[in-house]
Amino acid sequence: MTDFEKFAEQNPKFSFVPVMMKADSDEWGGENGYIDAKLLKRYVSDVSKPIYYLTRPAGMVMAMYDMFVEEGANADDIRAEEFSGYRWLLIT
């Protein structure tokens, strides 16, 4: 069980919806495809109520931010961090 699954189990106000753009396995139990307004509305009945947390590449964060605001989320309730790249550290 992941930390996010534990959070969702312990807190009824926290929802975790895993999404993979293209699942390579039938074992994947989450959503498939892009995160769009249709997927958002499937899980959130009133888009204006939650606090949203966004992170990953800047382009994705900005696209998600814009989509949430267009769908009725309050911009003050969106927390975002942008990562322009990832670095790997290899210790041998």
Rank of each mutant, 00 (worst) to 15 (best):
D76Y: 10
A58T: 14
I78P: 00
M20T: 13
L40E: 11
A37Y: 03
K41R: 09
S25D: 15
A37P: 00
Y43A: 05
S15K: 14
G85N: 09
D3E: 08
E71K: 10
L40I: 12
E71W: 02
V69W: 00
M60G: 04
T92L: 12
R56F: 03
L90D: 08
S48D: 13
M21F: 14
D26C: 07
A8L: 06
A75H: 03
D76Q: 12
L54F: 08
N74R: 13
M60A: 09
D24C: 11
G29I: 14
F4W: 06
K13M: 13
Y86P: 02
A73Y: 00
D77T: 14
T55V: 15
G33M: 04
V17C: 07
F7M: 06
D46Q: 03
Y86R: 08
M67Y: 01
D3C: 11
P57L: 03
G72N: 03
F14S: 08
D24M: 09
L89Q: 08
R42I: 14
R56H: 04
I78N: 01
M67G: 00
M21K: 15
E70W: 01
N32E: 14
V17Y: 05
W88Q: 12
L39S: 09
K49P: 04
D77N: 13
P12T: 11
A23R: 00
D26H: 08
V61N: 00
L89E: 08
L90G: 05
E81S: 04
F4I: 11
K38F: 07
G59I: 00
N11H: 06
M64G: 00
E82S: 00
W28I: 07
P12E: 09
K49N: 09
Y86Q: 11
F4C: 10
I91C: 06
S84N: 13
D76M: 08
D66R: 10
L90E: 13
G33P: 02
I78W: 02
M1D: 05
L89N: 09
I35L: 04
E5S: 10
L90R: 07
I78L: 07
K38Q: 14
E81I: 01
L90S: 07
L39P: 03
T2M: 12
Y43V: 08
A58C: 12
K22A: 03
K6A: 13
E81Y: 03
W88G: 15
P57S: 03
Q10Y: 06
F4G: 12
E5Q: 10
E5H: 08
Y53R: 04
A63K: 02
A73L: 05
E81L: 04
S48Q: 13
P50C: 08
A37D: 06
V69G: 02
Y34S: 11
F68W: 05
Y53Q: 05
M20S: 13
I35V: 10
A73I: 01
R79C: 05
E9K: 09
W28C: 10
T92N: 13
F83L: 01
A63R: 02
A23C: 04
G29W: 06
F68Q: 03
E5D: 09
D24E: 06
M1W: 06
V44P: 01
V44G: 02
K22L: 03
D36C: 07
P12Y: 11
M20L: 15
D3H: 10
L54R: 04
A23D: 00
L89R: 10
D3Y: 07
K49V: 12
D66Y: 02
N11T: 05
I51S: 07
F4H: 12
